[in-house]
Amino acid sequence: MSIVSNKYTGKAALLALITITGMGLSGQVLASTDKHKITLALESGDRTSASGQSVQMLAELVKKNSNGRIDINIFYQGELGGQQEMFDQLVRGNIDMMLTWPQTSYDERLAVNYIPYLTLGWEDALKAYSDNGWLKNILAEVYDDMHLHYFGPYPEGFGGIATKGKYATNFEAAQGINVRSQPVFPLPQTMTAMGFQATPVDWSEVYTAIQTGVVDGDSSNVIYYDYEYFRDQIQYYVHSKHNFSSYALLMSGDTWEKLDKEDQDIISKAAEQVIEKKFGDARAEDEKWIAAAKAAGIQYIEPTPAEMQAWVKRVREQVWPEAEKMLGKGLMDKLRANASNPE
């Protein structure tokens, strides 16, 4: 005897049958059929760079796991504009994804990503930025408030100072050396505290600025960028390690919310694979480019422990109080509690 006919008749029976059939299928997940074309912009790095190869890996994983439904169209450095311009478009939803050094113009708390001498070694840095790391969790809250979906950090290594004609490993020697700085607080302030003259220059204009003598060099980048793009202009790379270079892989909140759960998971899992690989490769990748720079004739210089301690002390005393005015005492107290201790 039919269960439906035993209890229901007519339209009621038909409704019950539809309901029961739906319940029988409720445990099955219907595959998404939506097609998406996603724009991903790379702030710096061409298609052959480590970051360029990483986003290519991301696009390939997403395309494969979505059976070709989700296509990520990559634009490399400079193709869609400068740093601030592209970040503006990401926030507005005109660019869907971006691998970027976030601009503090929308939320001053993003300066957390650039606080100088916050971590002093690879182990501390990777721990801070890793999944559930104390620094990653702080940043995730800020991005959420900005309506940006944060997949995670893209660690590169510790920055330094690349120059031609002269170099410095201490405050006194840095007097009179003019270096390009990213126009993001507190990186110019950090250079000033270290003794250099800091001139904010957009990435697309750095080569010309060094070539024409507007600046004596570049600062705060891992050695790869100075070797790859300026090696015919620079002679020295001082590994001051004043900042840990970590990009952020972000998606516009509007774009994220348009995706169904299945497609969100596809992109998230691909991003996790890319980020996990970068965490594993970051230190070796940095050492690889240090060796390449040396082979190209660039003098690689590490300050002595005493010089490093002097720079750390001076920068923390001068820049961290300025950062506290922007970030607030509560947030700076968290940073101080977790920051690396100088040896």
Rank of each mutant, 00 (worst) to 15 (best):
S2A: 12
S5K: 14
K7H: 12
G10H: 12
K11D: 13
K11M: 13
L15E: 12
T19A: 14
M23R: 03
M23C: 14
G24A: 14
G24E: 05
L25S: 13
G27R: 10
A31P: 03
A31R: 07
T33Y: 03
D34T: 11
K35D: 11
L42Q: 15
L42P: 00
L42D: 01
S44I: 11
G45V: 03
D46T: 09
D46A: 10
R47Y: 08
T48S: 14
Q53T: 12
S54R: 12
V55R: 00
V55K: 02
N65P: 08
I70T: 11
D71L: 11
D71K: 15
I74G: 07
F75M: 05
Q77V: 03
Q83C: 06
M86D: 13
M86A: 07
F87T: 08
D96A: 11
W101I: 07
P102W: 00
Q103V: 07
S105N: 14
D107C: 07
R109P: 03
R109G: 04
A111R: 02
N113P: 00
N113Y: 02
Y117S: 01
L118K: 02
G121Y: 07
W122Y: 09
K127F: 08
A128K: 06
W134R: 11
I138D: 06
Y143V: 06
H147A: 12
L148V: 03
P155T: 12
P155M: 09
G157E: 11
G157H: 06
F158C: 03
F158G: 01
G160C: 07
G160L: 04
I161D: 00
A162W: 04
Y167C: 04
A168P: 00
T169D: 04
T169W: 02
F171S: 05
A173C: 05
I177F: 10
R180K: 08
S181G: 09
P183H: 00
P183E: 00
P188K: 01
M191L: 15
M191R: 08
M191E: 06
A198P: 09
T199D: 04
V201M: 04
W203N: 02
S204I: 15
E205P: 00
A209Q: 02
I210M: 10
Q211C: 05
S219D: 05
S219G: 14
S219E: 05
S220E: 15
N221D: 05
Y224I: 02
Y225H: 13
Y227V: 04
R231C: 03
I234W: 01
Q235A: 09
S240Y: 01
H242A: 10
F244E: 01
S252G: 09
W256I: 05
K261C: 00
D263F: 05
I266Q: 13
I267V: 14
S268R: 13
A270W: 06
A270F: 07
V274R: 01
I275Q: 02
E276I: 11
D281N: 14
R283D: 01
A284Q: 13
E285H: 10
D286G: 01
W289A: 00
I290T: 12
A293H: 00
A293F: 04
A296E: 11
G297C: 08
I298F: 04
I298D: 02
T304E: 03
A306Q: 14
A306V: 13
Q309C: 02
A310I: 06
V312S: 02
R316N: 10
R316H: 12
V319L: 09
E324Y: 07
L327F: 09
L331W: 00
K334Y: 00
L335Y: 03
L335W: 02
L335K: 05
A337K: 11
A337F: 10
A337W: 08
S340F: 13
P342S: 15
E343G: 10
